[in-house]
């Protein structure tokens, strides 16, 4: 496959940055999107150019490191797929592809397609934990949890924190991420002691980090590689209303 790429190049946080056009040739349709960028980077290195910086780690779709805007869609055209699991067969020979980093004030660009998602860590630090006795781990069946709750908590827990929700949101909001964490812990008996303080603290951390507000537009859930459902945001809102009304 031969493709024309327009890639965001930015030397560092202070650089203005610009879209640069590259032609890539002889790409296997079985290559992943990141492998296609690897091929381009090898050529750039041989030519003495700076390779395109992008985040990646497991390349198995489970770590949440990779992610880029591909033709205006976070993680590209395939639903419930991370960029590393997106294969070139979903593109056509001769296609022109625009590649940009996540755009959000809370996710400043470090270099090229790499952004700093430390703001997510701040949200987690504000309430993404439970109070648990230290020492010997309790027996796995010591606290009974209804199957339905365990499944729902697990569904929320599949969030890998990649940031696609923020990138896709017209308001640059991290609500789906925060809602997934609040639901994940709030559905478990172990998460009950901090249930009220957690939601208030995490929303405060989210606002403080510079994320926008949720308009329930649903852009986030359609690009989420883990399909985190939009209704978890309603759950967060319900927890929040309960928490601020002092119950």
């Amino acid at each position: 496959m031969n493709l024309k790429l327009r890639v965001w190049r930015q030397k560092g946080p202070e650089d203005k940055g610009r879209m640069v056009t590259y032609e890539v040739t002889d790409i296997s349709p079985d290559a992943s999107f990141l492998e296609m960028l690897d091929v381009l980077n090898e050529r750039l290195i041989l030519e003495g150019d700076e390779p395109i910086a992008f985040d990646h780690d497991c390349r198995e779709g489970i770590c949440g490191m990779c992610g880029m805007m591909i033709n205006g869609v976070a993680h590209g055209p395939e639903r419930a797929t991370t960029t590393c699991q997106l294969h070139m067969r979903h593109f056509k020979d001769g296609d022109s592809i625009d590649i940009e980093p996540w755009r959000a004030a809370a996710f400043p660009v470090i270099k090229d397609l790499v952004v700093n998602r430390g703001a997510f860590d701040e949200i987690i630090q504000a309430g993404g934990y439970i109070t648990a006795p230290t020492g010997t781990a309790p027996d796995a069946h010591a606290t009974p949890i209804p199957k339905a709750d365990a499944d729902a908590a697990f569904e929320a827990a599949t969030c890998i924190g990649c940031g696609a929700c923020v990138a896709a949101c017209p308001n640059g909001s991290s609500m789906l991420f925060t809602a997934a964490k609040v639901a994940h812990l709030g559905l478990m008996p172990q998460g009950q002691p901090e249930r009220s303080s957690r939601v208030i603290s995490m929303i405060e951390a989210q606002d403080e980090a510079g994320f926008g507000g949720c308009t329930n537009a649903g852009e986030c859930t359609t690009v989420c590689p883990k399909g985190i459902p939009l209704n978890l945001i309603g759950r967060l809102n319900a927890d929040y209303i309960k928490a601020v009304s002092g119950r």
């Binding site: 033709n71 940009e100 755009r103 809370a106 896709a168 852009e219 359609t222």
Partner: peptide
């Protein structure tokens, strides 16, 4: 205003509407 501040740099490739047009 907060939403505008949350995305100071726009995308060069205008994102496709994936969710609802009414919402946008």
């Amino acid at each position: 205003v907060r939403a505008r501040k949350a995305r100071p740099v726009r995308y060069a490739h205008r994102p496709k509407v994936q969710g609802s047009y009414a919402a946008r």
